[in-house]
Design a protein around this nucleic acid. Structure first.
Lengths: 137, 137
DNA sequence: TATAAAATCTATCAATTTGGTAGGGTTTTA
DNA sequence: TAAAACCCTACCAAATTGATAGATTTTATA
């Protein structure tokens, strides 16, 4: 399941993608428009900024705007930024790999192979869902 | 990600599936064989029993055994029993459906449609991973 | 240059979940 | 009749989640 943070991030990106080119959105606008607690959204936007999905302008008339095309922001990336691994176990993960401590040897891990298949299929599906694809209903 | 409970459940089922037909396995055997904390495994086996994946025989020389074919136990079922919904949001879930409270109307929920696509693909993949498929490496 | 508006930074917090452990009680059967 | 298993209830510490609060910095413009 997606955390609230990841869900809010997607909704915020969606909101930004729906604004006209060059428009800068204040946090409060996004919060009201997408129904997200404002203070919580602040943190999320900073995370999105660190992830280079959005950029910001400080001071009066400042705000946030997309710096990545809505066609290039995928569900997979947002999942990884906020919720981490897409695989079902760390030992089957590409980006968040860790050994399973309860498996004596890596080869012996009976689950790993099957879970890598799931990971590949889920990842492929998640890479196909973009902010742009979510807009056109 | 899978919880430890779900992971241990899969490993326990795998252990049982690898025993010869008619064999009954004691908790301690499974715990040692699959490297699972024994007391924790007890609870998991009870859950698996309630879920009608295994049955048990009490008393001396008692233990657990599969009552469902290893070809018919899927990752999807185990995920749902221990970790709940497969969908990324409750509003996109088949078996654990709940409305998103932060969406004014259901149709308005911009994420729902995309997440239902992911759910369908993930579910299909998870239904293809069975205990039997995990055994043949 | 003062000031208002906005992002940014740093803490804190309560509630829930997770990953167990402890310690029995109950039932079966050699 | 005692051993060996299942079964049950409660508890616990640590981590995570979903926020909130308040102070600080930056910037446009009157």
């Amino acid at each position: 399941m997606l955390s609230h943070k990841a869900k809010y991030a997607l909704k915020a990106l969606l909101y930004l993608a729906e604004q006209e080119e060059g428009h800068i959105s204040k946090t409060i606008e996004i919060a009201d428009g997408a129904n997200i607690p404002k203070k919580f959204l602040e943190q999320i936007l900073l995370d999105l900024k660190r992830g280079r999905f959005v950029s910001s302008k400080q001071g009066k008339f400042g705000g946030y705007y997309l710096i990545k095309s809505k066609n290039d922001i995928t569900l997979a990336e947002i999942h990884r930024l906020f919720d981490g691994a897409i695989a079902l176990l760390p030992c089957a993960s590409l980006n968040f790999y860790e050994r399973c401590l309860d498996c004596k040897t890596e080869e012996e891990c009976s689950l790993r192979h099957g879970l890598m298949i799931i990971r590949d299929e889920t990842l492929k599906a998640m890479q196909n869902i973009t902010i742009a694809s979510l807009i056109k209903k």
